[in-house]
């Protein structure tokens, strides 16, 4: 029974950690239809900014805040200088954001080097849940992820801003004719997506090695989570996709090595997309 509960907790926390990492990508993709391949680099940048802050004596929570704002500003500048000229050109934005990924990753190598770095766990120890153990820090970032998903859902479904955003997704021209300032909204969404990537990078930094290419695997996993969950289904899709990619990896890893489990999950995701290209909760 403890074993089952332990696996269940692993599934839930893996889902929520992946959802945390994927949310920024889902927000940008869902709202402005840009597949931001730079998301992985923004994640790594957030981790390095947090690492630098902590090593200069800044408390970890403040370091996370600094990383969030800093990467948000980087995203804003990228949008203003480059991306805004290419909206509604999906291939161009895909290539440009991949170029951004490469440039930022190389800049990270120039500034911080290629050595592996790590951050100490800010909340060591474990929490006992019904006899199963869960790391304190993993529990906290799972809660932060759940809170962010809830907040996003509340903004989308309970506020005027959310109505405007959903209108914009459905019919951009009509939303414009109703006074929705699309350029400003796109800019804000891109900056928020980048900030979420920075936040995620900073929060997962104590759990994994920090290295310049750390964003690659997370980019692939979050990309799969977003498209399997459903195009445009920002909150539900992210959660369902993260559950299928993150949670299923945990389950498959019970019977095989982690790498093999991940390969199986990606293969299953590709098959799922073959039969439902818009994702599980996506609408055409």
């Amino acid at each position: 029974m403890d074993r089952v509960l332990s696996v269940l907790l692993d599934v839930v926390t893996s889902t929520l950690v992946l959802a945390l990492v994927s949310l920024g990508l889902a927000v940008v993709f869902g709202l402005v239809r840009v597949i931001n391949m730079g998301h992985g680099a923004m994640l790594a940048l957030g981790a390095y900014v947090a690492w630098t802050c902590v090593n200069r004596g800044i408390p970890f929570p403040v370091a996370v805040l600094v990383a969030t704002v800093a990467v948000g500003i980087v995203g804003l500048v990228f949008e203003v200088l480059v991306i805004r000229h290419f909206y509604e050109q999906p291939f161009e934005t895909l290539l440009i954001s991949w170029g951004f990924y490469l440039v930022v990753t190389e800049l990270i190598k120039l500034v911080w080097g290629t050595d592996l770095r790590s951050l100490p766990n800010p909340l060591p120890g474990t929490l006992s849940v019904g006899g199963a153990g869960i790391g304190n820090y993993v529990a906290v970032i799972s809660l932060i992820s759940a809170a962010l998903l809830t907040a996003t859902a509340l903004v989308l479904y309970r506020t005027d801003l959310g109505v405007k955003v959903r209108a914009m997704i459905q019919n951009r021209d009509m939303a414009l004719m109703l006074g929705v300032n699309a350029p400003r909204m796109y800019r804000s969404v891109f900056a928020v997506g980048a900030a979420l990537a920075g936040l995620a990078g900073a929060l997962i930094a104590p759990m994994f090695s920090i290295e310049p290419d750390m964003g690659t695997l997370w980019l692939v996993r979050s990309f799969f989570a977003v498209i399997v969950g459903g195009l445009g289904a920002i909150v539900g899709g992210t959660l369902v996709g993260s559950g299928l990619i993150g949670g299923a990896t945990v389950v498959f890893a019970l019977f095989s090595k982690q790498v093999f489990a991940q390969t199986v999950v990606f293969a299953l995701a590709v098959i799922a997309l073959r039969f439902r290209p818009v994702g599980i909760l996506g609408r055409r």
Binding site: V163, R166, M174, V180
Partner: peptide, 21 residues
């Protein structure tokens, strides 16, 4: 607009709220 341009996924009141905004 031609074709009406209502936001199909939004409720009647949400569509009207957009007008008020």
């Amino acid at each position: 607009p031609q074709g009406r341009g209502v936001f199909a996924e939004l409720t009647v009141v949400e569509n009207l709220r957009l007008g008020r905004m």
